[in-house]
Design a protein around this nucleic acid. Structure first.
Lengths: 204, 204
DNA sequence: CTTTTATGAATGAAGG
DNA sequence: CCTTCATTCATAAAAG
């Protein structure tokens, strides 16, 4: 009830002049896309949930067994700019890597700007990129070291004490049937809503 | 879902020459908006229906703390590693988002409790979660606006950068209330969904 | 082309 | 509030 106003506001442009203008900002588009994707996901999951329940209790009060609408409209349109992410240049990577090693390991607000400025000479880059890079680099370096040093203090009965997250996820995926919602129908009704953007953005 | 600002910024360079033009007429936008509203309505009602139906057997769906996992995960009978951190339900998120944009921006100790109570109807949540959410939302919104500042110069109709379209949500459904929800929401859902989403993703 | 891996980015929570 | 960290999501790149 608010954004629509915004859209219209922006649409006040010369609609008759050129059919070559963005009516929605990328931001709005992205938001919309996500929102719809969320609904699509929820609905899909709900359908599965009901299917399951119905099968067990014959509560088919709602006929939705055949509803499963595959939102994969013929892929091809790719109209919506898909999210893209920065990819460091080999040069940038080298510099960053070097800084990481010798640096105090503390990104520092000031430094970031400085670094970003320098790296921009080797390709597009933003301060955020630099920031994220260091954050990730640090985190991963840490994790790696951690999992590499199981510290044999006690019996290794706890095989999954550390390396958990990633491994668990991987395992889960194996039997979670990635393609459709057949295995884990409502398993993420409560979370993970934005993972199905593909529905709206069938890149292929 | 918020840092769209960032990629938008980045997009400017990585895909500058592609001229991603999104063109929607007011009419299409309006249609889309309505459709989403309907979608939201249906979803919420389905959720409620599901809750009712499976109320007596769904108790295992909620694990410790904020974990909201699915009990219907029958295939494989595997225990899913529970999450350690709260993840807002799409419904909760929307409500929060709405409150954020329209709210005074003041979390307020009182409000928190209130909000938490309301949101608990849509999934597990604690006051701390709400508090953190607002805290983060605000901080990030701010930071983002800051990094996006250098791009806006012209005095054109300045659309505040912190817009969002999590509005036409499931609240007004009570009024909008699509007729067929109880009879055959599915058909309606599936059909409309598919046909209308084309606006966002035109098939070639 | 499909699956897997590497990694940029988003985000809930903790500390100060 | 602001900064930092840990975990998770999503996608470019690599492998098959």
């Amino acid at each position: 009830m608010v954004n629509v106003m915004e859209w219209q506001k922006q649409q006040r442009w010369q609609a008759n002049e050129m059919a070559y203008v963005k009516v929605m900002t990328d931001e709005q588009l992205e938001t919309l896309r996500k929102q719809i994707a969320v609904y699509a996901t929820i609905c899909e999951q709900l359908v599965e949930m009901h299917k399951t329940i119905s099968a067990h209790q014959d509560l088919a009060g709602i006929r939705m067994g055949n509803v499963y609408c595959d939102p994969l409209f013929g892929s091809g349109g790719h109209k919506i700019a898909s999210r893209q992410r920065w990819t460091p240049t080999s040069m940038q990577l080298q510099i960053l890597e070097r800084m990481f090693e010798q640096g105090t390991g503390t990104p520092s607000k000031e430094k970031i700007k400085e670094i970003a400025a320098e790296l921009s000479q080797h390709g597009q880059i933003s301060e955020t990129n630099v920031y994220n890079w260091f954050q990730n680099r640090r985190a991963r370096s840490k994790r790696k070291q951690q999992s590499a040093a199981p510290s044999s203090v006690n019996g290794e009965s706890e095989v999954e004490t550390e390396v958990d997250s990633k491994d668990k996820k991987a395992k889960a995926d194996e039997f979670l049937s990635p393609p459709s919602v057949s295995a884990g129908p409502a398993d993420n009704l409560g979370f993970q809503n934005t993972s199905n953007l593909q529905y709206l953005n069938p890149v292929s």
